[in-house]
Simulated assay, not measured.
Amino acid sequence: MDVWDEVVSASVLARGLGISERRVRELRDQGVIPDQAGKYRLGDAVLAYSNHNRPASGKAAGGGSEAAESLDAARVRLINLQADAREMLNAQMRGEAVLAEDLEVVVGAIVDGVRARVLALPTRAAPVVLGLPGLAEVRDKLTELVHEVCGNLAATELSDAVKDRARRRAGRGADGDEDSAEAGASS
């Protein structure tokens, strides 16, 4: 007779499975482990118990508890979230992605600078245009001063400033070398 065909008591099965007799009876009452008048066919009981505790495969694959399924699902979600976070950080480090916060800070600083220069324009332009002979010369001089003020708005400079801030936040310097984690986090 094969050892798996042996019929054993709850205490023998409990010792074999490494659980308490009480747990064996609970699993029997839940219909997880089949019994025959309080006795258990060893092969059937071990197979049923292992299917019940099978991680990752869950109930759809022939066993597993609801708790094991939800724990496995939570682990998968956590691993996926961690992978997504690492991908986003890598994209920032390569300069392919920036955080909206970085864009807001850099654009805000540039706009504040341009605003200050525009507000200073009348004070700066008044003495220059005062002595000009005609309207055409005044217009040309004011156009020149406005172009000078707007020179800081070059798209490449804005893009470079945002990418540089993103790299610093991700722990990289402007040249791509690793900085300290604190430097990246505090940017």
Rank of each mutant, 00 (worst) to 15 (best):
G62D: 00
M1N: 13
A85D: 05
R41A: 10
V107G: 02
N80E: 15
G95R: 01
G31V: 05
L42H: 08
A97G: 03
A37E: 15
E101M: 03
N90Q: 13
Q36A: 14
E26N: 12
S187N: 13
G58W: 01
N90M: 07
E144P: 06
S180T: 15
N80M: 08
A83W: 06
R75T: 04
A61E: 03
D177Y: 04
G63R: 02
R86A: 15
V24S: 03
S159L: 05
D164M: 11
V111A: 03
S20I: 09
Y49A: 12
K59G: 03
D2H: 12
R22F: 05
D177H: 08
W4D: 12
T156D: 09
A68G: 04
G38V: 07
E104N: 10
G171N: 02
R23V: 06
G18I: 01
G131Y: 05
N80F: 05
M93C: 03
A170K: 08
P34L: 00
Y40I: 05
V111T: 10
T156P: 00
V76F: 08
D112N: 13
R54P: 06
R94C: 08
S65R: 00
A68D: 11
L132R: 05
V106K: 07
A100G: 06
Y40F: 15
G108D: 07
P55N: 00
H147A: 10
R139S: 11
